[in-house]
């Protein structure tokens, strides 16, 4: 089955290698991987999609957690969530054939973001199947697609969900206050009697 892992990782050199290396070792192909800043300073958020057996999910999640730079891991599985992907598609189109493409773009609720005399660029956001639908229709017009750039899936659970790990960490300023308090406590505990 297709697994979607959402992870918070430290924003440091080499972290992505460690995550990717885990899947390499298991000989699991990564379908898509998106990484970017999160709401927490110093932490990046990634969405990783891969094919693995249903039982493998827990072990992969447990193994991801064992990586020192991984702070939180969620296996989205069937949980209610919103998934989006962004695609940029460059299509060859002479002025006389543009209007058909404009119609398609309209139907798919995509946008034209660049236009030259011989080509145009379409931006589309949506679920994977919708993007694939647009690509398919464009392909039916033989030889029209010049380039496709897809972001890969981004996923977020619906509702007021926040993982227990992140909750324990607090948010932003709260977090640093909590950490500071903890450190102070420890410093006192470590003081020689």
């Amino acid at each position: 089955m297709l697994h979607t892992f959402v992870a918070y990782v430290e924003d440091k050199p080499g972290v992505l290698t460690r995550v990717a290396s885990l899947f390499r070792r298991l000989n699991i192909n990564i379908h898509s991987l998106t990484v970017g800043r999160s709401e927490r300073p110093g932490l990046s958020r990634l969405t990783l999609v891969c094919e693995a057996s249903a039982e493998a999910g827990d072990r992969i999640r447990a193994s991801l957690f064992k990586l020192e730079n991984v702070v939180d891991v969620d296996d989205i599985a069937q949980a209610p969530s919103v998934t989006r992907e962004l695609a940029l598609i460059k299509v060859a189109a002479a002025p006389q054939s543009r209007s058909r493409i404009f119609d398609l773009v309209e139907v798919f609720r995509a946008r034209i973001v660049d236009l030259t005399s011989e080509s145009l660029m379409i931006e589309m956001t949506g679920v994977e199947s919708k993007i694939e639908g647009l690509i398919e229709v464009l392909r039916e017009d033989e030889g029209r697609i010049l380039e496709i750039c897809r972001s890969g899936k981004m996923t977020m659970r619906r509702g007021h969900h926040i993982s227990s790990v992140l909750r324990a960490m607090g948010t932003g300023d709260e977090e640093s206050a909590a950490v500071a308090a903890l450190r102070e406590e420890e410093r006192l505990a470590a003081e020689p009697e």
């Binding site: 999640r61 447990a62 957690f65 064992k66 939180d72 227990s164 950490v179 903890l182 420890e186 470590a190």
Partner: peptide, 14 residues
């Protein structure tokens, strides 16, 4: 040395 102490150890969340 003291300032270089690591963050408190966090047990595996699972």
């Amino acid at each position: 040395f003291d300032a270089a102490r690591p963050r408190p150890y966090r047990p595996h969340p699972m």
